[in-house]
Design a binder for these strands. Structure first.
Lengths: 335, 335
DNA sequence: CTGTTAGCGCCTTCAA
DNA sequence: TTGAAGGCGCTAACAG
């Protein structure tokens, strides 16, 4: 009983295939009685429209591509949950593209993506630069496939629909909290690779530091836990090294730092006050529990998906730039 | 310049569309010169075959479905990295289905999956039971779409290709290590929900405990961090409560336990020795660093994908049951 | 080695 | 409200 087609249904229901198609796609255009009959046959035969044929004929796939940098990053994975739940509401399928290392020609990949006939693209890769942003614009215009950026942004332009939080402000705020605690030697722990969102966090940090007439200290490190630990150990090995406040661009970096300090005999938050960024599972699985910016990552995913859906339906999102509110959670690594 | 079709290419290259199709799918069947010419035109026009048309005509999609329980579980996310990298080797796309909560009719969903014309299914949902297993078999047989189970298994049968580790043995081994340390009151911390793999871990634990003539203590808890903490606090609140060894079925559970104990003033591993399961990022981000079973999750994903590819190509995997080797990593929560 | 010709399963006018 | 008919873009025999 492999694969009933629309013909089988039409035959069994004693109608033409056009009617079957209509009861599925434009129910109101078919008389209730026949509709019921067709629906019953469909159920009996377990008929499911062939997605290819449907896509080929209708030019729509009810599928969106999700382009992510690295699944193992907690924020990415969590965002996918939000996206998936929202996508199912619209009966959309998700095509997943992981850009994990490998020298992938992103332009080439995006063309492959559109060749796969997706109705839209969710772009979660936060390592975005000008060239990439321009390319995304070209893709969107040329192939007329809407693109939404989620938890990333390109601050110098706003042609693409974007969902994010105010990273600048969030960083500014937590730096301000450290300053309010009386911290004088506040370091920023950020990534060595260029991520647009981390640059914004850096700016927010710098602004707060500057306003307080303190000296900025920006440390660029790896995203890798083991490397970070070694790195921090070296950086802060001197007993004289003064550091009493930390703003980390990721929870995992903050936790690595906290662990390193505690093993050195420092007290957290008495000696050093620490804030992370994201509110991933790490922040409550660590000890002491991490104070951090709570990024509503699930909601960002859901919102991005819903905006994309609107774009796909041809509705115009007047507001391109969607900033979701964030919270600052004070746990045990700060006062 | 929206979307060149095979006709455009054929016309520009002065050949028939069949030749274009051949240079793409059976290059050896076309004369080198014409092949080059066609290829050049393809590049010039930026032609990419329409996946729908291709799929409809060829009955193949070069797409596999990946069915996962919850993206936010570190093991699931990490496995997807392995799968994605391997899939790209074969130029396969991934269709992602997240079963996150929601009362989803799984049978219905699987039919939707096959309606999407996937060439194969990767099933990562470890909460598998007999009914589900049977259903998967039916799907595989009826729709002739190969299915591979990754990091889960159904131990009472082996019709489906499976990639996993020996959970029973791993649990038996770490329990044995605790016994060898001289621990007498060893608890198993497992999930309240029934996961086949956790049942196997439980059996391994019980066997070791029994052989050592100790008393088994199985505690079923939530997968949620906050709930676990409360739960552990209550369970072990009595000072008299003797517990000197822990086998946890997940790293996150182990870490929650460790944190709870340390806050009670217990010393780890002096007072209580702890082993986790999986070797996720949590195991090195926590303090003390977690001893645990190292499950080669990335390799499981890659292996599963490669076996699925073989099945899709019609090659028979004589060995259905693929057990990958695991390691036991002793860090700081055990001796 | 290359071209011709049927479909693949469905959607969508256009008539009836 | 329904049916007939023409594609959507590509693959795969079958001829030549």
């Amino acid at each position: 009983m492999n694969k009933a087609t629309i013909y089988n249904v039409a035959y069994a229901a004693n109608v033409s295939l056009a009617t079957v198609s209509r009861t599925l796609n434009n129910p109101q255009k078919v008389k209730p009685e026949t509709r019921e009959r067709v629906l019953r046959v469909i159920k009996e035969l377990g008929y499911k429209p062939n997605a290819f044929a449907k896509g080929l004929a209708s030019k729509k796939s009810t599928t969106v591509a999700v382009i992510v940098p690295d699944m193992s990053r907690a924020s990415v994975a969590e965002m996918l949950n939000g996206i998936a739940v929202e996508a199912r509401k619209y009966n959309y399928s998700l095509l997943l593209y992981v850009m994990k290392d490998e020298k992938i020609d992103e332009a080439e990949m995006l063309k492959e993506v559109v060749a796969n006939q997706v109705d839209g693209i969710l772009y979660l890769n936060d390592e975005i630069n000008e060239a990439q942003y321009m390319m995304l614009n070209v893709i969107q215009d040329e192939y007329k496939v809407p693109i939404v950026l989620a938890n990333t942004l390109y601050p110098y332009d706003n042609k693409l629909v974007t969902v994010c939080i105010d990273y600048f402000k969030a960083a500014y705020e937590i730096t301000g909290r450290l300053i309010a605690e009386g911290r004088k030697h506040i370091y920023l722990l950020t990534t060595a690779r260029k991520y647009m969102v981390n640059d914004l966090k850096e700016e927010g940090y710098l602004k707060a530091i500057k306003e307080a007439h303190l000296n900025p200290n920006v440390i660029r490190t790896s995203g890798d836990i083991a490397i970070n630990t070694v790195h921090f150990n070296e950086l802060f090995k001197s007993e004289h090294e003064a550091v009493d406040g930390i703003v980390a661009v990721r929870d995992s970096i903050a936790v690595s730092f906290v662990n390193t300090m505690i093993e050195k005999g420092k007290r957290i938050p008495e000696d050093v006050s620490v804030y992370g960024f994201q509110n991933t599972k790490y922040s409550t699985l660590c000890r002491p529990k991490l104070s951090c910016v709570d990024v509503p990552i699930n909601e960002i995913g859901a919102k991005a998906m819903s905006l994309l859906k609107r774009e796909i339906d041809g509705e115009v999102n007047e507001v391109k730039f969607n900033v979701l509110p964030h919270n600052i959670i004070t746990r045990q690594t700060s006062r």
